[in-house]
Amino acid sequence: MANIKELFNDQALMRELLLDHYQYPHNHELVQDGTYLSKHMASASCIDDITVQADIEDGTIRDLRFDGVACTISTASTSIMTELLKGKTVEEAKRIIGEYMKMINNEEYDSEALEEANVFQNVYKQANRIKCATIGWDAVKEIIEEKENNG
């Protein structure tokens, strides 16, 4: 059985995937709904400006959305993240985020857990752009932490 990591050795496929998520980002609309927790990532850099919203109920991420002005990598990585984490329990999401961060930092990671997000496996080679690949993920991480701290 082909390892999922090997599927992502196909450059044309990876490019297609990134282009798709950049040009037609998924879950790319915020909602006016008080049940959503929101995180505006404006001070992380002076370039990308992203807001992420999450609806977390009963320990499950029911919905995840984002909007903002950002580069290809920020937009595509956040778009892919929303698809990947939506419907997951908070515990599952935390594990996936952890594996993603390992990949971004060029450490051993569980590629099966990351599905489409494996497309960012080589971003670590552009050291100054690592933040772009993590900005949306950091937002969700912070939302989860705040949710857990506030009960």
């Binding site: 990876m14 490019r15 990134l18 282009l19 290809t72 990598i73 080679k125």
Partner: peptide, 10 residues
């Protein structure tokens, strides 16, 4: 091109 700028990250 957009494709060329994306390939940098693949």
């Amino acid at each position: 091109t957009l494709e060329a700028t994306i390939d940098v990250f693949l």
